[in-house]
Design a protein around this nucleic acid. Structure first.
Length: 423
RNA sequence: GUGGGCGUAGCUCAGUUGGUUAGAGCGCCAGGUUGUGGUCCUGGAGGUCGCGGGUUCGACCCCCGUCGCUCACCCCA
């Protein structure tokens, strides 16, 4: 066994799998750009308050899952457990003009026991839109996610949606819910018998039978929306309908972070049979900017887990690569005269992806490498070519030795290769 | 944090009641073809059998501990 390996719950990603990551991120960048979002980069760690103020001091993530540490200056930091809080902190710090729309891709860290689709370091891509409470913006954010998933080739994805209202709606609901839970507290599962009073919304998330039936009979969140929130929610749903994006009202959907207000949503991949089938989620957080010290500013965003998106693609047997990472040409040089060194440089300058043999390997050996590289053509330089000032272009997709290769003058190689590859 | 399964070559895995030098397939390297890949043939490299302790004349195998992987609960992406 090696003395070192990647930490628990983390993974190295090498080719060819890494090409899927590249393709996924490139696709997301393309869609974010189309939707008017610009890239935002923030530190991977923040003062711990940035995170636990927003997501809730006593949420699961804040209490037991954060990677908290002290630096040498005895400041207390945490590795980011999710993407939103950092972007909002940066928004408050720099005060860009609104509406501000940023997209990101980032690792996220949570200290938990790993299992399928759940890691201590996972990766999210997402967007945040700040400075507008227009329901059309909610629709844009959700549509971006939906269009992106479709571009990945995912078809068995459902959108669950709910509205939590603003503080007052939510407060009234929580009061009534707490009352209901108190009446039926003996019927709750063991864990929630202890915690129902502290955070009643969490009971809605519980999948155990007793809690499910108690909350089924209880008050429903959408019934408590004020006129404004109800009409906002109706507009969001109407906008989604207009775009042909199907959404399923899920009154129990409250999500894990405390900062959510009004629109909340979650995308689940039905192809993932296990419990980790949420591939993305998000919502509005109209109070978060203020909580992090800014002027009252509404906002909405979503985040999506890269690992789960890839698992969902695999589960749906989607095989499109999203991006091509095979090389174009492989240079085989058996002269020992460094012909390849200048040749590959010239070809690369012309825009080709080029690999070559090293270590003075035999022609047979280098041809094997050429084949394995996936290159469409090999360029051969041996003593004969060197003496004649020529290069042999060898087509690697052909099995006809005579037809498959031609000699061209060294100085015409770029043009000849271009012509050859275009055939 | 709790529970199940599993740790043997780069990968996927065999390994007899505990008995000489731990094997296979794939992959890798070289050769057959001193200038030609993808097929075929031959050869080679590569292992502290996760780690530590114990039982035994003898341990990959049995026992204890530990670390890791994995799956599930919980929660989430």
């Amino acid at each position: 066994m090696n003395p070192f390996q990647s930490p628990i719950g983390t993974h190295d990603v090498l080719a060819p799998e890494s090409a899927l990551w590249e393709g996924l991120v490139a696709t997301f960048a393309q869609y974010a750009y189309r939707f008017g979002f610009t890239l935002v980069l923030t530190p991977m760690f923040e003062e711990v308050g940035v995170f636990n103020r927003g997501i809730g001091e006593d949420s699961e993530v804040a209490t037991k899952e954060m990677y908290v540490f002290q630096d040498r200056g005895e400041r207390t930091y945490a590795l980011r457990p999710e993407g939103t809080a950092s972007v909002v902190r940066a928004f408050v710090q720099h005060q860009p003009t609104t509406p501000y729309k940023g997209w990101y891709v980032t690792p996220a860290f949570r200290y938990e026991r790993p299992q399928a689709g759940r890691y201590r370091q996972h990766h999210q891509l997402g967007v945040e839109a700040l400075g507008s409470d227009d329901p059309a913006l909610d629709v844009e954010v959700i549509a971006l996610a939906a269009r992106f998933y479709r571009a990945l080739g995912l078809t068995r994805v459902r959108l669950l949606i709910n509205s939590m209202g603003h503080d007052e709606c939510r407060g009234r609901y929580v009061d009534v819910l707490r009352g209901h839970l108190e009446e039926h507290r003996e019927q709750l599962c063991d864990e929630h018998q202890r915690t129902w009073s502290h955070n009643p919304l969490r009971v809605l998330d519980c999948k155990k039978e007793p809690c499910v039936s108690v909350t089924d009979d209880g008050p429903s969140l959408p019934d408590f929306l004020c006129a404004d929130c109800a009409s906002h929610f109706a507009s969001v749903r109407r906008g989604l309908d207009q775009l042909g994006i199907e959404s399923v009202l899920e009154p129990r959907l409250v999500r894990g972070f405390d900062y959510y207000t009004r629109t909340t949503f979650e995308f689940v991949a039905d192809a993932l049979g296990n419990a980790q089938n949420a591939i993305g989620g998000g919502g509005r957080y109209d109070g978060l900017v203020e909580q992090l010290g800014g002027r009252p500013t509404p906002g909405i965003g979503f985040g999506s887990g890269i690992e789960r998106l890839l698992l969902a693609r695999a589960a749906e047997d989607v095989t499109s690569p999203l991006i091509n990472r095979t090389i174009d040409v492989f240079v085989v040089d058996t002269t020992g005269e460094d012909v390849a060194t200048a040749l590959v440089d010239e070809l690369r300058a012309a825009g080709y992806a080029v690999e070559r043999g090293f270590d003075g390997r035999s022609m047979r050996s280098q041809m094997k490498l050429a084949d394995r590289s996936g290159a469409r053509a090999a360029l051969l330089v041996g003593p004969q070519e060197l003496a004649a000032g020529q290069i042999t272009i060898r087509d690697l997709r052909s099995d006809d030795f005579e037809q498959a290769q031609q000699r061209v003058a060294r100085e015409n190689i770029v043009g000849a290769l271009r012509e050859h590859l275009n055939k």
